[in-house]
Design a protein around this nucleic acid. Sequence first.
DNA 1: CAGAGCCGCCTTTTT
DNA 2: GGCGGCTCTG
Length: 685
Amino acid sequence: MFPWLDQLNEDQRAAATFDGGALRIVAGAGTGKTTTLTSRVAWLVGTGTPADRILLLTFTRRAAREMVARTTTLLEQGDGSRARGRHPTRVLGGTFHSVAHRTLRRHASALGLPDGFSVLDTSDAADVIDLVRQEIDPALPDRRRFPRKATLLDLYSRSVNTQRPLSAVVDEVAPWCVDLVEPIATICRGYVERKRTLGLLDFDDLLLYWRAAATDERLGATLAGELDHVCVDEYQDVNALQVDIVRALRRDDERVTVVGDDSQAVYGFRGASPRHLLDIDARFPGIATIALGRNYRSTQPILDVANAVSDDAPAGFLARLRADTTDALTRPRLVHCADEDAQVAAVCTQVLAHREEGVRLQEQAVLVRAAHHSALLELELSRRRIPYVKYGGLRYLEAAHVKDLICLFRLADNPRDELSWFRLLQLVEGVGPVSARRAIEALGVDQPGTPAEVLLRWPLALDALPSGSRPAAATLVTALRREPDEPLAAQAERLRAALAPLVERAYENGAARLADLDALVVAANDAARLSDVAADLTLEPPSSTGDLAGPPLVDEDWLVISTVHSAKGLEWDVAHILNASDGNFPSDMALASLEGLEEERRLFYVAVTRPRRALHVYVPLRYHHRPRGRDDAHLFGQPSRFLSDPVAACFDLDRTTHTERHHAVDGPVIDAALKVGADLDALWA
DNA sequence: CAGAGCCGCCTTTTT
DNA sequence: GGCGGCTCTG
């Protein structure tokens, strides 16, 4: 009846067909987690649960897309669903934040949210908190030692996500701020208040309001009543808020499936903790557990590395991986390089060697701890005309001009969006932070009244700007007024046109940037309103550089560069791990605490479990060190502490590659060289 | 002389 | 792209 079940092993099948309430699947790297979870959803549908009453929550949008697609495929080809005829085959799914957003839009009035509320990304949120900080600035002790806006937001966010008092969070992650807890708390209060008056929600608010909705007696019952089963992927990465939401969505119902792997918990910096997976019976008493240990991804020599890394963890990991492959077994290679240039050369050589063997570039990934670790490599790849796509790091949304149009879209539905005003007004020539702030003051974004009344005060704001700047500013604001019955697409196009001259003026390559904005206007075609377009882009920004710019790749094959965080859940034939030296990987930022170090170890574990057939780890012995703009001195790095003797013993060592690439060749000066200056002299004569 | 604008420095990980 | 420091302008 369910042909896909035959392709599962015994443990996977037991998990897919489990029929006794709450279930926890502990699935190590490469053990067929996605296959098992999608099979389980297909089994649930096949045995009578309507697909659109199953909610599949994932952590990243990439995982969400893949899971929903694979489930749909299984259901459409499976006998079970065909017999059911016109029943839906598409499950509800998405990231926690995107499902939260959908729920909030649907129930905005019940939650006391304005209709066109704006969704802030991290940098917007930091800007709001900075606004609040500047207002109470005079009251602050010693400005120099006061945390910067990103730190303030981090403290606030950790406190919210872990549901712990601010003072405890400061104690733990910013001990140098312990005597500043009071002013920090004042800023947090002001931040919450400010977002409320302006109709702004940050990422954490999406979860907070979703939880409020789900725990409400009536609304929560409605939400829970829409669902028969809830599945959560990557449960080791959930935080306290998300746990509350899952529990609330189930009420007294025990039909829940969570999948996770404690050895791959790498989001502690966002308030996540693997304890939620390990101690799940506190919230779901009597939950059953099925563990998957057979690895279908990697060869045994690669798994030996993974297991050795896990043996070094003081607490140990639950899963121990056994290989299932019988492929040719090449041992992983540990490549010592003289410096970063030599590392780049070694990677290029190795990548091309694999391609000669028939491994496509797309089946090879370069994994880095921090996005900027690949900068030198990217230069060299461009020089050699080797195409690549990079995941993680600076996202496209952070391109200033894209954000400008997003802010304009936000303003169209929410004229109280102070942040968007602040940003856009400064695009006008002659307007800086001071007059922008004065204009916003005149607008009275925080005054009571309808949003439309804010725009009526625009003439007052105009007076606050330098006279030379007024015409350009007025043109922009005129575009915000929507004609009656105007289609959304037309409005979007009008806004783009109004922004265009400002973008061309404000940025070096303004004309080239305009093309990107067209993609945003196209996105407005099938949206309900512009603030949805803005929110969707904030919640699901294009995941790789170039995604938004259309298909930039003429070549049909390209190398993948990814941060380890963005690589989680993915696999390639070959993985190259760069900068395996202490301070880089593990990052020195994380070494302050034991938990930090252990999270780095899990991150390294994630990295080494990505490849199917070949693993290369590169250790530059000398690398540029630029911590506080001191000098450009090189630093001799120790190899990563994760390459302990037992781990290193799993590798073949390679110390000889590419050390000579940039060394000058000695010899007598050639005659032609002596003539260079003389030849030039002729030019000046 | 306040405020806009430019130059040169640096950058953990993500929803 | 952000930020601090510096210079130029209205």
